[in-house]
């Protein structure tokens, strides 16, 4: 789990071009959208691609997106539970 959290932080920084932010700056339990990193709906699409391309994980049910996308930790938990 810790390794996936670290990888996810690195993917987010790289793919979302988060300037002057290091993996250590990202609180794994802090919200990704609104407060916290302040991501938006375009970033949500980018995160879907990160999950599919790097972990083969697809969000089959859009209703579950909100809790899954809450934080880096919830994303990592979803990957662990759904990775093929």
């Amino acid at each position: 789990m810790e390794q996936i959290i670290q990888e996810l932080k690195e993917h987010l920084i790289e793919e979302l071009n988060l300037e002057e932010i290091t993996p250590e700056d990202i609180d794994a339990e802090a919200p990704l959208f609104g407060d916290g990193l302040g991501l938006d709906s375009i970033d949500a699409l980018e995160i879907i691609l990160i999950l599919e391309k790097n972990y083969g994980v697809k969000l089959s049910n859009s209703a579950e997106a909100k809790p899954v996308f809450y934080s880096v930790k919830t994303l990592a938990e979803y990957i662990v539970n759904n990775r093929k």
Partner: peptide, 9 residues
């Protein structure tokens, strides 16, 4: 498939 939205925008 799986196209990043940012470069398109």
């Amino acid at each position: 498939d799986l196209l990043n939205p940012t470069p398109f925008i």
